[in-house]
Nucleic acid binder design. Structure first.
Lengths: 242, 242
DNA sequence: CGACAGGTTGACCGTTATCAAAGATCGTGG
DNA sequence: CCACGATCTTTGATAACGGTCAACCTGTCG
């Protein structure tokens, strides 16, 4: 179970929700939807962004809260997860620096349906809904970038839906490993981007099953578990036939 | 298995892919993303749309084909489905008049990952990628509408993903029925928007299981099957606790 | 060094897919 | 308007898959 309360105590300068006026530039420049702009437009964007810091375990937002900002991760990692109707949680994605969230609620719904929780100490740039909408109307090219981002996310989400609907756990794991290998590969060795517990939540299964299936794949000679998160892919092609 | 070849013969005036210059207005006006515009802008949009007719069973596009248009359904129904890595198909959604598709590939990917097949004789308005992008840059307010549509679709898709990941079949069926009741309800009687076979594909299960679960729900007194597609919801609250 | 979260392992059982076959329904053409 | 075939739906028997519970390990961090 992901911890649902913010880590208790703040101390020193970087307590949660601390407005932090330094370092805007690096944050905004990171973001794909903005990085095609000229300097003058970039300045305009930076003028409406606010930087906030979160400590590990704190929530950027929770389901049910009102949404009025776009959140851009500039440092750290953020876990986005949902609770299903029956109360089980599912990990939707993990945000790394440059990734953003909050889009959904920005344009249609105004209530978050997911939870966003800092996995480590994290800095977030926020842009308010109204400011963003003004920018989008003024610089339509940003809209096209956002649309491109959305459509690829939608594509991704529908692919994931289809996998859940049609593939068994073993296949989902194999496909996940294959995708890691595509993006991460160093001689076929991959580093799992999350704990196996989180992976279970992401793949819609349990830690026990993840553990067992990993050993099955190892026994079959498709992979080798070098350490908890370091996996050597021995035979990618056969893996994908599972 | 959804039939993968186009229905063979065309005859008369409305054979497939027939350019049909009448009746643009009704099609464009139907679409939520356009219906806030002034007449002059509407005319401009209609100038770049083309109307095409498809007979039942014909494909608007297939996975792997290049995508360069937005498709707006003006008459008929269209089934959008995917094939998973292992070849099983999953029904993603059914388009009714006013719904559109093709968005994904329009802004990022250029290759369709899904199949779009006419369930009945259908008329489609198409807008080419370049024409649409020009319109979006010229009238940024359209972009905001499209963004709103996308974000709600993304929300929907992620909710569906979470359901597949965390709920058992019986619960997914119950949630589906409840949603039908929300939108369709006439005294709690709903008309299934698709065959049970398609429903199985949509919910990631098999026709056999659908049939059995429906009878289980009926035995439990939650629903009553008046005919194949007419379902009377007897006890919505209990249904949602399944 | 101890505590705690994450990971592994085993036994068990519920859920749901699969296969097969029969029955109902729908659309089509005669 | 009816008969036919195709497709959808139902029903039964069976087994695989994966979830659950409980216990034990292991690594990590204070």
């Amino acid at each position: 179970m992901i911890d649902k309360v913010n880590a208790g105590h703040h101390h020193g300068h970087h307590h949660g929700h601390d407005h932090d006026t330094e370092n805007h530039e690096s944050c905004v420049a990171l973001v794909p939807i903005f990085n095609h702009l000229e300097q003058s437009q970039m300045d305009e964007i930076m003028a409406v962004t606010h930087s906030v810091s979160y400590r590990k375990g704190e929530y950027i937002y929770r389901a049910g809260e009102e949404s009025d900002s776009l959140y851009i991760v500039s440092r750290g990692r953020v876990k986005i997860y949902r609770l299903s109707e029956s109360g089980k949680e599912q990990l939707l994605r993990i945000l790394n620096p440059g990734d953003f969230t909050g889009e959904l609620a920005l344009f249609s719904e105004t209530i978050h349906e997911a939870y966003a929780c800092a996995m480590e100490d994290t800095s977030i740039c926020t842009v308010r809904r109204q400011d963003l909408q003004k920018l989008l109307l003024k610089y339509p090219s940003i809209s096209l970038k956002v649309l491109a981002e959305f459509s690829s996310r939608l594509e991704q989400s529908e692919k994931q839906t289809t996998r859940f609907a049609t593939e068994k756990v073993e296949t989902r794991i194999a496909l996940f490993l294959a995708e890691c290998a595509d993006s991460d590969s160093h001689d076929g060795e991959i580093i799992l981007p999350m704990s196996k517990k989180d992976l279970a939540s992401y793949l819609g299964t349990t830690p026990e099953t993840i553990s067992r299936k990993f050993y099955e794949l190892e026994d079959a000679g498709y992979i080798k578990q070098k350490s908890n998160k370091r996996i050597q892919i021995m035979d990618l092609d056969s893996l994908l036939l599972v």
